[in-house]
Amino acid sequence: MKTNSSPWKELSAAARRRWPSPLPAGEPPLGFHARVLAHLPQTQTVSLELWWQMSIRALPVAAAIMLFCWFMLPMGDVEPDLAELVMEAALP
């Protein structure tokens, strides 16, 4: 068979004349806006929810550190003073 140097060029030129134009799109269908907007708060609150969850989980850790500091660190300084006060009050 005899071959043309650019059969695609010939075919596409012929096809282009009948290539259908996209149908015009007027307005979004009913409920379209709501469906899109419904997805947006979820995507925007993901980061907020993540921070909230991390904050909640961090609370027990923070409380444990605070209690540790409260009971362990001041012990060396406070106990002698208390003992001193008790002794002073008890002994005339």
């Binding site: 010939e10 075919l11 004349r17 009948r18």
Partner: peptide, 27 residues
């Protein structure tokens, strides 16, 4: 037919535009 015309006789494609569109889509 559109394929044959594209390869051998492009002047015939004017009468075979429907086949040309479908063939182009498939390709």
């Amino acid at each position: 037919r559109a394929l044959e015309s594209s390869l051998e006789a492009p002047e015939r494609l004017a009468d075979e535009e429907t086949g040309a569109v479908e063939l182009a889509r498939k390709l």
